[in-house]
């Protein structure tokens, strides 16, 4: 067997699997989005129906807020952990990175334990503070699973920063705030863009957390889910999925082009 034949043979299982279970289903999804009563006009319908546009805008705004917060928190903590060595650092690092692959439902439940009707805050305030099922609860849940991802990216990037740059800036008389602004943040910028894009994409598509918390909030994944299961409006669910998928994919491609690192969503 010629070695090029063998190499091609190695790609065959992947090709077959991906064709059957990714390419064909996605093609079918696109076709069925146009097979409703409105035909391909369904995309126009989405843009003119307040329920859908509100959900879209709401999801984007929420995701933007989550991205900003996760970036701020994780960069602060990540820089601190990367630049300081102290007892308990390893423990803090594990706590901050372990939720990496927690499913969204579990995170939703953890938010309920914090801010639900029988949650920690409710117990401490005699039932006055309940936020789990509001936008705030959703926001906290999304932050919960974004922090580990962003933190790992920031720390990896910090370790690659040349410490000489910082020392050079110091030797030229820069204060520590100036060093952060002029040397560290510009150096981290590509990674921050990548991490931010992942956080945004994950928040856009997060279903598990929304499923446990957002019974009364219209975020896009929940709208898709109700269109599909309750209204049995398959065309609309498909069209919304395509919009959601396309937006997140485009964003990650852009971010990867910017930073060169691989991005993984989930949750």
């Amino acid at each position: 067997m010629r070695s090029s034949t063998f190499v091609r043979l190695c790609l065959l299982p992947l090709f077959v699997f991906t064709s059957a279970f990714l390419a064909l289903p996605l093609a079918r999804l696109i076709l069925s989005s146009g097979s409703g009563e409105a035909g391909w006009g369904i995309y126009q319908q989405i843009l003119t129906t307040p329920r859908y546009t509100t959900a879209l805008v709401q999801t984007v705004l929420l995701s933007l807020a989550v991205t900003a917060a996760a970036l701020a928190i994780s960069t602060t903590a990540g820089l601190f952990l990367a630049r300081n060595r102290f007892r308990g650092r390893g423990f803090i690092l594990s706590v901050l990175t372990l939720p990496l692959a927690f499913p969204g439902v579990v995170i939703g439940f953890l938010i309920i334990l914090l801010g639900g009707r029988q949650g920690l805050f409710a117990q401490l305030t005699d039932g006055k503070v309940v936020f789990a099922y509001s936008m705030l609860g959703l926001f906290l849940g999304y932050i919960y699973f974004s922090i580990p991802r962003v933190l790992l990216t920031v720390m990896a990037a910090t370790e690659k920063l040349d410490p000489n740059l910082e020392e050079a800036a110091r030797s030229l008389g820069a204060s520590s705030a100036q060093v952060v602004r002029d040397v560290i943040l510009p150096g981290l910028a590509p990674s921050l863009v990548a991490a931010g894009a992942i956080a945004f994409a994950t928040a856009m598509g997060a279903f598990g957390t929304a499923f446990t918390l957002a019974t009364n909030i219209d975020v896009l994944p929940m709208v898709i889910y109700t269109e599909f299961t309750l209204s049995a409006n398959i065309a609309m669910a498909s069209a919304l999925s395509i919009i959601l998928g396309f937006v997140t994919w485009l964003l990650l491609v852009f971010a990867r082009g910017f930073s060169g690192s691989s991005a993984a969503a989930g949750g």
């Binding site: 079918r28 999804l29 598509g205 994944p221 889910y225 990650l252």
Partner: peptide
């Protein structure tokens, strides 16, 4: 990149 929900629907 594409949310699991969309893949599942497909």
């Amino acid at each position: 990149a594409v949310p699991g929900l969309a893949l599942a629907l497909a």
